[in-house]
Simulated scan of single mutants.
Amino acid sequence: MKRFSGDRTIDGVKASVDGRPLDPRLDLHRYTANGFEWSYEGDEPRQLALAILAEHLNDPADAKSLVEPFMKAVVANFDNEWEMTSADIDAALQALGSGSLRAAS
């Protein structure tokens, strides 16, 4: 099970998966050149949503199709520090009506 986390530090925001920096997946789509952010709706949270979903689902098309609802329902509501597991993401996707999508193990 993967563990995603984010933190606001004096050096800026940090997002990681299993302790390593989370790939912003600019190869899939570039919403912003400003990196990740969260706790509001916008381009930086959208980039974070794409990165989380792409890592979790291992399916670029599904990740891209779910960015907007996942960003609005989940990423825009993160606190300054946050943590999610693969199970948390599955539960969020199911709540968004995407329960048939599952992470590739």
Rank of each mutant, 00 (worst) to 15 (best):
L22K: 05
H29M: 08
D11Y: 04
K2G: 14
P24A: 03
G6D: 08
S65W: 11
E41W: 01
R3P: 04
R46Q: 05
L93R: 00
R30Y: 12
S16E: 14
D88K: 07
N77Q: 10
A92T: 09
M84I: 07
E83L: 15
A63S: 03
K2H: 15
D59S: 12
H29C: 12
D90V: 00
T85H: 10
Q94N: 12
L57W: 06
G19E: 02
A104Q: 00
L22N: 06
G42R: 01
V67Q: 04
D11G: 13
P69H: 02
D11M: 13
S86D: 15
G35S: 07
L26K: 10
N58S: 13
S65D: 03
K14N: 15
G6M: 10
E81P: 12
S100G: 14
K64C: 15
R25C: 02
A54T: 11
S100A: 15
E37N: 09
D90F: 09
V74N: 09
R46E: 02
G6K: 01
S39N: 14
M84F: 14
H29A: 13
E68M: 14
D23N: 14
V67T: 06
A51G: 09
D43E: 10
R8S: 07
A91L: 06
H56V: 00
M1I: 10
A87F: 15
R30C: 11
F78H: 03
A33P: 07
W38M: 10
A73M: 01
T9F: 08
A15E: 02
S5A: 10
D90G: 12
R8T: 02
G12L: 10
V13D: 04
W38C: 01
L28S: 00
L48G: 03
G99M: 06
D59L: 04
A33Q: 13
F78C: 13
M1E: 12
T9I: 00
F4W: 02
N77M: 08
D18L: 12
L28H: 00
F36D: 02
R102T: 09
R8P: 04
D79E: 08
E37W: 12
A91D: 11
N58T: 08
G35P: 03
K14F: 11
L96F: 07
G19I: 09
A95P: 08
A103E: 15
N58R: 08
T9V: 05
I89N: 00
S5Y: 09
D27M: 09
D43I: 13
I52Y: 08
E41H: 01
L53N: 06
R25F: 03
V17Y: 13
W38V: 11
R3F: 05
D88R: 06
D62W: 13
E81D: 15
T9Q: 05
H29P: 00
S39E: 11
K14C: 14
F70H: 05
